[in-house]
Amino acid sequence: MLPSLHFPPDPARALALDLRMRQQLAQSLAHIGQSLENSGRSLPGALTTRIELLGRAGLASPSMFGLYYEATSALLGNDVGPGLALLDELAGAPMLEDRTLSIVTFDQMPRNQQARYRRLMDTDPETPFRIVAPPAGLGAASVGAFASALKRLRAAVPETVDEFEAIIREVILVSGDPAIGYDFAGGSCYMLWGALFINVGAHRGDIELMEAIAHESAHSLLFGFTVDEPLVLDAGTQRFASPLRDDLRPMDGIYHATFVSARMHWTMSRLLASGELSASEADEASARMQTDARNFSAGYATLRAHAQLSATGQQLLDGALAYMEPYTSEAA
């Protein structure tokens, strides 16, 4: 059954999206296994076990998804040796035991995992994205700050955090490589389903962190909706001004920025309504709502003028617009 495309956070739907992604991973690996057999090769026995576990709702780590994408890219590109080696590595990757959220700094991960995450996040030739560990001495504090913000958000807007934790398995705290020449707030990647990167230096205070959680988890949510078709059908060759970036972006990026702006607005509005904020935090949240509304309007105008939306993209955007309409008329 296809998931509902309504706009507000829905933890049960997020669980279903996560399950679907893992089942699709299992089916894809099974197809690769069958293709290997047809070619006179065999799948590692441990990988057959992984496929069975995934098919029975076993929890896959973001690393497993990353290994799958790297292995499949290699095999599709006829790099058979590297592809099979990556499948071997995937076969040895442990399943997750439960849904406990892991919050770590980049350097706390094994080096080969750091390298893989770097490669898969740095996939846009127009926008290099190189991550490094947070500065020495900031690690524990940044983990604590994120956990604290998440706890506050759970108390104030539980459905946002429940949805977040249905999809996100790992929060990886990073800094940007100074050589890339720009700063970033966070990031996530379709090929690392369940992982979310947060820049420790980019968030001053709980309101900014809570908005970042809403921002990045909305990107991951959109990934979850796009298993069978993309959000936009544009070829991806044209570039447009993005409300959330200072560089020109393809239409898929504009779509993401528009939708996540609506989700950020929703989260800020629920935070304000919760009564859990101090007076200065309430002012900050209110100001962010106005910025989110302006960003949504700018992105939506670009989509309306230029985008070819898939059915999934259209329905999701309609839901975002229905929520934002009272606020965008005020912001106009």
Binding site: M121, D124, F129, C189, M191
Partner: peptide, 13 residues
């Protein structure tokens, strides 16, 4: 893989 679809979504500060 096409970065616009599968690649990273980066929130610039």
């Amino acid at each position: 893989v096409p970065p616009a679809v599968l690649g990273a979504k980066i929130g610039k500060a």
